[in-house]
Design a protein around this nucleic acid. Structure first.
Length: 396
DNA sequence: CATCCGTGGTT
DNA sequence: TAACCAAGGAT
């Protein structure tokens, strides 16, 4: 093994890092307990998500679902609502599915063997190591982005960290660095250093406890590591969104629908929307008429007849792989037309498939008030549109 | 192995 | 400001 990976270099690293962690570790909510359930929740929430973002969600979640059984028995709707705004919603659904696994297979206690932990839904290689080490102090590596950045710099590893093989290398190295009996603290120390000191763009080398033997630092290459292949930019998608106000019994209500069981924002609620015919022209509002016609037609095909009331707002939303450009239009339900159209049910059902253009059809539509939003989980982009709408209604 | 899966903060 | 990135996992 190369000199920079020597036993001396590795022991220095582990010793100094642990010492630094004892002095510098943050007081985080999930560090105040040894409850494996809390550790588990925090690790799921922290996947691709910043500590500051997670903290309020963590508090709310353990208050609402204080035990594994309470989580297992809750309606999925409640779990999603608790996750609303945090993103990557399959984490929430997998977490609940895993809680049910734990109730059935492990007597309601988080298992402490590798095979059982990694078999839990939503728990991959990183989270397996995190749970085993942090909750049970087992000497398993927990290699996340922080760890790969720190190790790639200190040990000057130039392999692309996006590649599977590099992660395997990192896991072997990280595992060999764990001091006997100190897995919980050491793994957290490694991540803590990456989060607070060995940051991606502006590492604070002068305050780093292992600067003296950091290979990248010694060669002035800390900003060049880790090597990471670039992600593809999100593809643009142009969509027309309908904000339909109810009439008669539904006065003061808005039409929403639930998304399909799989894929983007699975089982979340949203405003109805359709793909735009083409990119919106820069000339303002020229195409509003045809856009509203297209939306009205689409709504008719699911049994709601409307009259256009004009543009409401534009919105953008960037997912990891899709960039939504949304144009939102207001409509008034035309209840008389809806009643008249009762005879057309069959035709509607057939037209529905054509209209969805290969997308999975939303099955459930609902007319909601502002208060109903307390119970239904919406992705942020629709939360913003709806909250603005209801706020304006309140003033009027 | 590449792509899908959210959102918000940082530089 | 537009990348870049964050305690990743599933397929």
């Amino acid at each position: 093994m190369e000199e920079k990976w020597s036993k001396e270099s590795r022991e220095y690293f582990s010793t100094e890092l642990l010492s630094w962690y004892e002095r510098s570790k943050r007081d985080l909510p999930w560090r105040r307990h040894r409850d494996p359930y809390y550790i588990w929740i925090s690790e799921i929430m922290l996947q691709q998500t910043r500590v500051d973002t997670v903290i309020p969600y963590f508090h709310r979640f353990i208050e609402r679902f204080p035990t594994i059984s309470s989580l297992a028995e809750a309606p999925e709707e409640d779990v999603l609502k608790c996750w609303e705004g945090l993103g990557y919603y399959s984490r929430a659904r997998n977490l609940q599915a895993a809680a049910r696994q734990v109730m059935e297979r492990h007597g309601g206690k988080v298992p402490n063997d590798k095979a059982s932990v990694s078999a839990l839904k939503g728990v991959g290689p990183y989270t397996t190591g995190a749970i085993l080490s942090i909750a049970f102090n087992q000497p398993e590596p927990a290699v996340d982005g922080n760890v790969m950045r720190v190790l790639s710099r200190y040990f000057f590893i130039e392999e692309d960290i996006m590649k599977t093989g590099t992660r395997a290398l990192m896991e072997r190295l990280a595992g060999s660095l764990i001091p006997a009996g100190r897995a919980a603290d050491f793994n957290q120390a490694l991540m803590e250093l990456g989060a607070l000191v060995c940051t991606p763009k502006a590492p604070q080398c002068l305050t780093c406890p292992v600067m003296a033997h950091c290979s990248a630092r010694l060669e002035g290459a800390e900003l060049r590591l880790p090597v990471k292949s670039k992600a593809k930019p999100p593809r643009p998608e142009y969509r027309l969104v309908a904000l339909v106000e109810g009439e008669g019994e539904r006065a003061g209500r808005v039409l929403v629908r639930r998304r399909p069981d799989t894929g983007l924002l699975a089982r979340m609620w949203e405003l109805p929307h359709v793909p735009a015919a083409d990119k919106p022209g820069e000339g303002a509002g020229v195409a509003d008429g045809s856009a509203m016609n297209r939306l009205a037609g689409a709504l008719a095909e699911v049994g709601t007849y409307v009259q256009a009331a004009g543009p409401f707002m534009a919105a953008e939303h960037i997912f990891s792989h899709i960039h939504w450009y949304l144009r939102v239009f207001r409509f008034q339900e035309a209840a008389a037309l809806s009643a008249l159209a009762g005879f057309a049910e069959m035709a509607v059902a057939e037209a529905r498939e054509a209209y969805n253009e290969g997308e999975q059809a939303a099955e459930e539509y609902r007319w909601i008030t502002a208060e109903d939003m307390n119970d239904l989980a919406f992705p942020n982009v629709f939360l913003k549109i709806l909250s603005q709408y209801f706020a304006e209604q309140k003033v009027e």
